[in-house]
Design a protein around this nucleic acid. Structure first.
Lengths: 139, 139
DNA sequence: TCCTACAATGGACAATGTCTAAGTCAAGGA
DNA sequence: TCCTTGACTTAGACATTGTCCATTGTAGGA
């Protein structure tokens, strides 16, 4: 169980009530909240926190590399606190549920050099799509 | 060179001037326009076309499975007319340029069954990120 | 304790996408 | 060819998501 708050403290990040609350809301496994959901939950703990602060704080955590932005659906970006361990995502097309998964092998090796168009590739994102057990049962 | 317009006609899609223009704008290889760019180019050919129609038409082409929605950057969705042939995307993190690529092998085999959480997986999206030759030279 | 640089606030603004009511038109039938 | 009908298009209001900025507040060091 990674502790996002501890990791941020360890980087000498200036701590404020607002930042602590955002980090607490975002902490955990299989957590993929939108900025708006983070704001809603943060407001429950600290009513006067503003939307701009939530956006700023999320943006800073992304810049620090402690949180990853995920764009699995067409709507809002989601924020994933498990930046410390590489992983990919599994998404249910119906309910939108997201799970972290760890495929075997390195997807980079699947791309031949004549398909790289001279690019310097630094990262690969893989999104598996389908139906979760619940939605599959209903369909 | 696939002809999007021909494929749509072949499906008995009711043809209108607006739909024809949108299909013409979107046709080609390595084409990944945003809805707004499609609207801008369509307006050049047919000035009175409305934004709603562009969105509707793109949405219908996606429903028909003739066009794919791509969410490579955090901003607008992009539309890719090469739905008839499976492929993945290579994105430049600086200039946002997108290329279609064809990795070898099946990325699905990389996901062990105990990492599938009971999901029925129907599709895998792979996005390679890095710098294009131009941006790498400047950096 | 006091200072100062950094953080938070809130409200306007921007970008993207959705919806609705009313008008228009493509395509098939007489 | 002309009519009919249901599907398509339009314009603009509205919704959602995200950004910016000037002002106010505060964490942490001297």
């Amino acid at each position: 169980m990674s502790d996002l708050l501890e990791r941020l403290r360890g980087r000498g990040w200036r701590m404020t009530a607002q930042r602590r609350v955002v980090a607490e809301v975002l902490n955990g496994d299989h957590v993929h909240l939108t900025a708006d959901e983070v704001h809603a939950r943060a407001t429950a703990k600290l009513p006067e926190i503003s939307r701009a602060t939530v956006y700023n704080t999320l943006g800073e955590m992304v810049s620090l590399g402690e949180v990853i932005e995920v764009a699995t659906d067409k709507r809002a970006k989601r924020y994933d606190p498990n930046a410390h361990r590489p992983h990919q995502h599994l998404v249910c097309d119906l309910c939108g549920q997201i799970r972290d998964v760890h495929p075997t092998g390195n997807p980079l090796t699947a791309l031949p050099s004549d398909e790289r168009f001279g690019f310097t590739i630094s990262d690969v994102e893989v999104t598996y799509r389908g139906l979760c057990p619940n939605c599959a049962a209903k369909a």
